[in-house]
């Protein structure tokens, strides 16, 4: 069964694809789940619309793309305008309140957090923004992918020198989202 169909969207350079890879890899390698990650992108390395899809399931996944996400991450206005209408009724929309003015006209649960300003305040630069978003996501999707699993992926992908920093950003996102987690 497909547990989560995640669509992560933003602009090139925000780390959307990296975030998707880390989430899917954690689910696949450390949670014993099936995961698939794909992306669609344009010619721009920076700027432009970026989107990455992650499907997490406890069985096989065939069609690899997300058509109707039950979890949308929107990190720019352009992304939210484009993808919010796709959200499956009752799905979650995680967005950054600093970057996105959400115009929610669908049946979805909005989860807005000031992650960008929090990261800037804490670290002085936006580098860990995507990791913070990932932490918030992990909290919102509950027990599906644990922070521990995500940390293991961060360590193998980015090495020990940035690890402490990355873990802090991850935990920060999770803590920010904690009050919004549904009982």
């Amino acid at each position: 069964m497909e547990l989560y169909r995640v669509l992560m969207s933003g602009s090139g350079g925000q780390g959307v694809i990296t975030m998707a890879i880390v989430l899917a890899e954690a689910a696949c390698l450390y949670e014993g789940l099936t995961a698939i990650q794909s992306q669609s992108y344009g010619p721009e390395a920076r700027g432009g619309a970026t989107r990455s899809d992650v499907i997490i399931a406890d069985g096989p996944i065939f069609f690899p793309k997300v058509l109707q996400p039950n979890f949308l991450v929107a990190l720019t206005n352009e992304a939210s305008n484009r993808y919010v209408p796709l959200i499956r009724p009752g799905g979650i929309c995680l967005y950054d309140t600093d970057l996105v003015q959400l115009d929610l006209r669908v049946d979805a649960r909005p989860r807005g957090l000031p992650m960008y300003s929090a990261v800037m305040k804490e670290f002085g630069k936006a580098q860990s923004f995507n990791i913070c978003v990932l932490g918030a996501m992990a909290a919102l999707i509950g027990a599906v992918v644990s922070l521990n699993s995500l940390e293991r992926v961060l360590l193998t992908r980015f090495g020990p020198s940035r690890h402490e920093h990355n873990c802090r950003a991850l935990r920060m996102g999770a803590e920010m989202a904690a009050p919004m987690v549904d009982a």
């Binding site: 696949c28 390698l29 099936t34 096989p60 996944i61």
Partner: peptide, 18 residues
């Protein structure tokens, strides 16, 4: 049976890569 993705939760081969 169960397709390629039918691994039991928690059981991941050590030589698995993503």
């Amino acid at each position: 049976a169960g397709g390629a993705g039918g691994a039991k939760r928690g059981a991941v081969a050590p030589d698995a890569h993503f």
